[in-house]
Amino acid sequence: CANFGPQPDGSELTEHWSFTGKMAVRNTNEASSFNVEWQQMAQAFEIELSGPLGQGAAQIKGQPGFVTMQRGNDVWQAGSLSELADQVADLQLPLDHLQYWVRAKPFPGSRAELLRAEDSGQVTTIRQSGWEVTYPSYYGEGATALPRRIDFERDDRSGRLVIRNWMTES
């Protein structure tokens, strides 16, 4: 079926979670979009970014202190996701922050300002590391519901992530 059933709640998220979605990255007048598969196993993660036909697929694997990315025959290595993003020209994405933003949490590494909706208590905005992150929609009404769409913007760069399916390790 099209949607993989009701989406889990944030409170059910243990150390192991994953999602599939679609991300658009943009600068002032150009954009590209790609599929995203993110698997988190405690501190270890695997992220796959691929075009509509699976082309240009990039696989990023990592754990604290060691991250590798493979795309085609090229391989990059770095000590962290942000270091990796510095090395790979077209990967200007705050992936380390996104690991938390996708769950409507601030990145623990730096100061953040959080705004919540009065009625639901859901996070509406996170301002952190020069980025403005907004949450236009969630899966459900409760304060611990998981985001369905995340927009993030800094200077002339912006991104939009639609999470199509959340999976928690039950």
Binding site: K22, A24, A31, S33, G51, L53, R149, R160, V162, R164
Partner: peptide, 18 residues
């Protein structure tokens, strides 16, 4: 055009090199 992303991108067809 990706409806759930509410985004559409355009390019000259000739560039469709993939």
């Amino acid at each position: 055009y990706d409806p759930d992303l509410e985004q559409a991108t355009y390019q000259p067809v000739g560039d469709q090199i993939q």
